[in-house]
């Protein structure tokens, strides 16, 4: 087992585009989510680490071992493809033992390993089935077992949950997380779903247009995004231009007291954000600036309201115990610490 360090990795893909330079740093045994919209270069970065896309420049280390010039095979890396890539002409068992058979491991050891991995991945009883006779979740587990049985140093998962039904996703996410902890294997998984990334990952790297925007712990990425781009990708943040004037923050929807002014320069308009769950609504009209409810959408545990204040529309999220009607006049509050000024202002 070992950590992973990619320094300024650059690769090119078929259409002539370039990905990178990408730098990643994952401590031993941790799980990192590579998060980004489709076309952001996440999968290509994964392929670069797997040795399937050649590194044009940069260095790749697994622990202290430099693997830049090695083939994927020699790097000792395991990858599970988005469509699982199971061999259709082999049973689950033959698929799982493929790597051992190719290495010419003695049959008795193969059987031992197989029994152990079948238990770990809860696949007992399905050994003799062909891939077409397995459900999506079972295929995923066979693909994981097939890779983990070869004991790779680094595990790469390409969109591990995207082909599963919504009700299976959470189960599979927890299953993968448990498995990853039990093996204590350094893991990178690619996803376009920020909730998936938050749920599974120890660390999150946000990518867009072939470059890394931010790497950090999930709460950091969520609460203190470096740029508006990251904030937009992390969910429905309200982004606006604000101006510090004395102790006040002037915004299109009123004047507020604000903290977190690091990115801002006094008197100059800069980009800020406030998250929907940090805006509190009141039925009474005198608790803060006034606004009108534009729309209400019920989401189960909470209600999402769009409110309009001074012609500016804000997204808010409220507990469902108090409900407001469309067109109702309300007042709202935002605590000073919930304003966030982006350290990187390019938008």
């Amino acid at each position: 087992m070992s950590g992973l360090r990619l320094q300024n990795g650059v690769t090119v893909f078929d259409g002539g585009g370039q990905i990178g330079p990408v730098s990643l740093d994952i401590p031993d045994g941790q799980m990192m989510a590579l998060l980004g919209p489709s076309g952001s270069g996440k999968t290509t970065t994964l392929r670069m680490i797997a040795g399937l896309a050649p590194l044009q420049s940069g260095q790749l280390y697994f622990g202290a071992r430099e693997v830049t010039a090695l083939s994927g095979q020699a790097r000792n890396v395991g990858m599970v493809f988005q469509n699982y890539g199971l061999f259709p002409h082999m049973t689950a068992e033959e698929n799982i033992t493929f790597g051992l058979r190719m290495k010419g491991q003695p049959k008795s050891e193969q059987r031992e390993h197989l029994a152990w991995i079948l238990e770990m991945t809860r696949l007992g009883g399905l050994e003799k089935r062909f891939p077409k006779e397995l459900s999506g979740g079972q295929k995923q587990r066979v693909a994981l077992a097939r890779t983990l049985i070869t004991e790779p140093d680094v595990l790469l998962l390409d969109e591990p949950l995207s082909s599963l039904d919504a009700n299976l996703r959470e189960d599979m996410a927890l299953f993968i997380k448990d498995l990853q902890r039990e093996f204590n294997i350094t893991t990178i998984f690619v996803t376009h779903d920020q909730e998936e990334a938050m749920m599974l990952a120890d660390q999150v790297t946000v990518m867009a247009d072939g470059a890394v925007l931010q790497q950090g712990l999930p709460p950091e990425i969520f609460d203190r995004p470096l740029s508006a781009k990251v904030a937009e990708f992390m969910g429905a943040a309200n982004i606006f231009t604000g101006r510090i004037q004395g102790i006040n923050l002037q915004t299109p929807f009123g004047n507020f007291e604000a903290l977190n002014t690091e990115g801002a320069e006094a008197g100059k308009g800069t980009l800020w954000m406030v998250r929907p769950e940090h805006i509190r609504l009141f039925r009474e009209g005198d608790k803060g600036p006034g606004a009108v409810i534009k729309s209400a959408r019920y989401h189960g545990g909470f209600i999402q309201y769009e409110i309009e204040a001074h012609g500016f529309v804000l997204k808010t999220r409220q507990n469902s115990d108090v409900s407001f009607q469309q067109g109702e006049h309300v007042s709202f509050q935002i605590a000073p610490q919930h304003f966030w000024s982006f350290p990187e202002q390019d938008h």
Binding site: V77, M79, F87, H89, F98, M102, K103, R146, T147, T150
Partner: peptide
């Protein structure tokens, strides 16, 4: 033929001949 299948065989440690014999040819 799904090229990913061949990449997968590579990553699982198959030599070029093994990949042809056990994955490519059957497919």
């Amino acid at each position: 033929l799904d090229g990913g299948m061949l990449d997968q065989a590579d990553l699982l440690g198959a030599s070029k001949m093994q990949r042809f014999r056990y994955v490519e040819l059957p497919l």
